[in-house]
Nucleic acid binder design. Structure first.
Lengths: 247, 247
DNA sequence: GCCATGTTTTCCACTGGACGGAAGCCGTGG
DNA sequence: CCACGGCTTCCGTCCAGTGGAAAACATGGC
């Protein structure tokens, strides 16, 4: 009854993992029933699994009783070598970049059809940005995103090109025009955006190469690129090369 | 035989979690048999669970075949509110502090009898430090640690005092002398260390209050405190108050 | 090349722990 | 006071996880 009630290959472990997957940026705190609904699991089962995860430290509870991701996950996550290794190496160069430009500095990698921000340096009086460390944004509205997209396999590009949605009046929504920009990124060696994600924020970004593969992108967010594009590009290129050499 | 072979209340989920727990700073990459040994699970079972965790993205594999923590854990970990909330709020103030002092800046919380570093700003030419974001250190050899220990429940203090081990010639190993220092921390409002963790590195740290509870600590690492102690304390206090007010 | 040694992967019959419907509990508010 | 929605506990059924064993695979010594 009630249709296909449960996923086919649902192993025990995968249920616990399904619960963790139920959390995302829009759902940082959820009640038992929310989680059960989002993970598509029966209440009683969810309840028991939540108990186990909580006891272990994977989840915490707010005074309200809602569940949130716990410290232990944050903690163990920092053992991930790809993320922390790159960050570790890049850190001092990000500082230098910030010192030299006073712009918001971003270090990001691609995950599927999204950017994930590994690190961000933001000054006190920098332009407001929506990025967060650990957060995700579309590939086609940010400087670092465009770089990563330009070097991504064509399946990924196709997926992204098929789903362009307007965020600001300046967001690129024409597949042809985005495709042209991506070609330019490969030619010129850097990408730019002009208020395509946030009004009042422009950005410029370059790839970070490990051997001959592009593994990450380094970007700056500034109020305007007028006149400073080449200077910022120069600073970015030096930093990206230094980071790449050290990987 | 060979003693008590398996934990008593070992639920399925807890085995997957035991595998994740097998990873730590000294064991970032492990083979199947290493993991099975550390998690105290049979090889075949471990193998299957590793497969599930890998397929989901909780674990990655190196070219060598060794398992490491995967991006997904890092990713989900950043949804933990305690960690990221505090970081988010503190970030601009850490920058200011760095700008004003050019010292390495630390933001840390206590977990049991250890410090966990939530954030670190390190200049290019700062004193070398052993801290890492997401890393753990003892409570009694670091500035932020002493602050957090001074405000910790007495059980925690007793545990720590019972296990003082020398790291540098200047590490405090006398329980009495540490206890005296902790009292001073409460009196003066800040803690200092002088080469107790790393030779050539001194530190000063203050508590961050949320309402009337101490939730974190903010610290600076410098080559020497000579003459600058009061100036650094002033800067720290202002920053810590601003952060606390915003929580 | 060949065998000895250590590690990873696959297999499968058995069984004990997960499953989840249902009933009880608790807080809220009409 | 009772009705309602969400949380927690209970417990008999049964199937998915278990793990010993053996097969594949990788090393490396001679």
């Amino acid at each position: 009854m009630a249709g296909n009630s449960r996923q086919a290959g649902a192993s025990v472990t995968s249920r616990a993992l399904a619960i963790l997957s139920a959390f995302d940026e829009q759902h940082r705190a959820m009640s038992l029933s929310d989680i059960a609904a989002r993970a598509d699991l029966p209440l009683a089962t969810t309840h028991r699994l939540l108990g186990e995860l909580f006891r272990w430290g994977a989840l915490d509870r707010l005074p309200s009783g809602d569940y949130v991701i716990g410290r232990k996950i944050w903690d163990i996550g920092h053992l991930a070598p790809a993320e922390t290794g790159l960050r570790q190496v890049a850190e001092p160069f990000l500082h230098d970049l910030y010192g030299a430009t006073l712009a918001t500095v971003h270090l990001a990698v691609r995950d599927g059809a999204e950017v994930i921000y590994l690190d961000r340096l933001r000054g006190n009086q920098s332009v407001p940005v929506v990025s967060k460390v650990g957060g995700r944004l579309p590939l086609y509205t940010t400087g670092v995103g465009k770089v990563l997209l330009a070097y991504a396999p064509s399946e990924v590009q196709d997926t992204v090109l098929a789903g362009l949605t307007r965020i600001t009046p300046y967001t690129i929504t024409q597949p042809g025009s985005l495709r042209r920009q991506l070609r330019q990124v490969l030619d010129k060696g850097y990408a730019t955006t002009r208020e395509e994600m946030t009004l009042g924020a422009c950005s410029i970004a370059v790839p970070i190469h490990q051997r001959d593969r592009v593994v990450a992108s380094l970007g700056l967010v500034v109020p305007t690129l007028k006149g400073s594009e080449q200077r910022l590009y120069g600073a970015l290129r030096v930093a990206a090369q230094s980071i790449g050499r050290r990987l």
